[in-house]
């Protein structure tokens, strides 16, 4: 009976945002919540640094590659579709590349 009450209370606190540090007397196992969070903070800090380091290396690898050159495709009817004028003029806002041709 007492066990089930403890369990349902634990379930309720978990649902309510896991207020681990709200009530010190409720702690039932050896490691303290604050210590766990400090440990997790350090762990995730390291994971973040690892992520930033590997992304930086990857960025150098990706950005050092030469840009590919694309040939102008034939004017297929499904490319560069224009059904009516834009409110601001004949070209799309980000379509500078089409002006060169």
């Amino acid at each position: 009976m007492a066990m089930s009450m403890v369990r349902s209370a634990a379930l309720r606190t978990a649902l309510r945002g896991g207020s681990r540090s709200s009530a010190p007397p409720k702690r039932s196992f050896s490691s303290s919540a604050a210590h766990d969070d400090a440990h997790e903070t350090a762990k995730w800090e390291k994971i973040t640094y690892l992520g930033i380091a590997s992304c930086t290396i990857l960025a150098f690898v990706v950005l050092s590659k030469p840009h590919p050159h694309y040939d102008e495709p034939p004017p297929y009817p499904y490319l560069h579709i224009r059904n009516k004028e834009f409110p601001w003029g004949p070209n799309g806002l980000f379509e500078k590349k089409h002006e060169h041709h």
Binding site: R20, S21, A33, A34, D37, A38, E40, T41, K43, W44, E45, I47, T48, G51, I52, S54, C55, L58
Partner: peptide, 19 residues
């Protein structure tokens, strides 16, 4: 991976708040 790393960083922030 840039976006996933920022997901790791937000988890770091969460644990830091809890700690």
């Amino acid at each position: 991976p840039i976006l996933l790393s920022s997901g790791a960083a937000v988890t770091w922030a969460h644990h830091a708040i809890l700690a």
